[in-house]
């Protein structure tokens, strides 16, 4: 595998073909904030928080680092006035849904985001899709999925599958950046209404 030399925040980083900028940065101990990224999962590119500036020759553009592949002579800047401004806004938009998420609040402090900027619509879910993708890609159970689109998009458990698979798994709960509130809530609701013929598992 050919090594590719990139420069991230002034630091020379060796990366290999097929790596993303985020992976290259992480390998060199450079931190880029993420919400929807997980090393076991296919890159998603949904939260956009990992946006960075890349420069090839004279051409600068802003890309999200979790999906952008490294290339020769790439220069990456992980912070700039504009990048911080974008991250601040993304956090403020998300905080309207999950105002108590410690992960979001920590990041908000770093980027000076005002958690009360937008009216609260506390649905808790920030649509990072970690639970949905983990259940699909790692567990191959597909007990939880997305429904609808746009601003009506939600996560929803398939009650029959959830009843069978979830009680003994629950691996998605700790992945949730909003502390599994939504996952737990939706799961409970799915399992109780409509009532299922399912016998509660002995572990409950």
């Amino acid at each position: 595998m050919s090594d590719i030399l990139v420069r991230i925040d002034g630091k020379e980083v060796e990366a290999s073909q097929g790596m993303t900028v985020l992976e290259a940065a992480q390998s060199a101990g450079i931190s880029i904030p993420t919400l929807c990224h997980h090393e076991k999962l296919e890159p998603f590119g949904g939260c956009r928080l990992c946006i960075v500036e890349v420069q090839v020759g004279d051409w600068m553009k802003r890309v999200v680092s979790c999906v952008y592949p490294v290339e020769k002579n790439l220069i990456v800047r992980t912070r700039s006035e504009m990048i911080d401004k974008i991250r601040k806004m993304i956090l403020e938009l998300q905080l309207a849904h999950a105002p108590d998420s410690p992960e979001l609040l920590d990041l908000a402090q770093e980027y000076g985001a005002d958690k009360d900027r937008f009216d609260k619509e506390a649905s808790f879910c920030i649509h990072c899709g970690l639970c949905v993708r983990y259940c699909d890609e790692v567990k191959k159970k597909n007990a939880v999925g997305f429904v609808d689109r746009g601003i009506r998009k939600e996560i929803s458990f398939i009650p029959e599958i959830a009843a069978k698979e979830c009680w003994n798994c629950k691996e998605c709960f700790p992945l949730c950046p909003t502390e599994a509130l939504q996952a737990a809530f939706v799961l409970t609701k799915s399992l109780t209404s409509p009532p299922l013929s399912h016998e509660p598992s002995s572990e409950e």
Partner: peptide
């Protein structure tokens, strides 16, 4: 095809 994916399509 997982039902979850069908549900997404049917509502998308």
């Amino acid at each position: 095809v997982p039902l979850a994916r069908i549900q997404h399509i049917a509502t998308f």
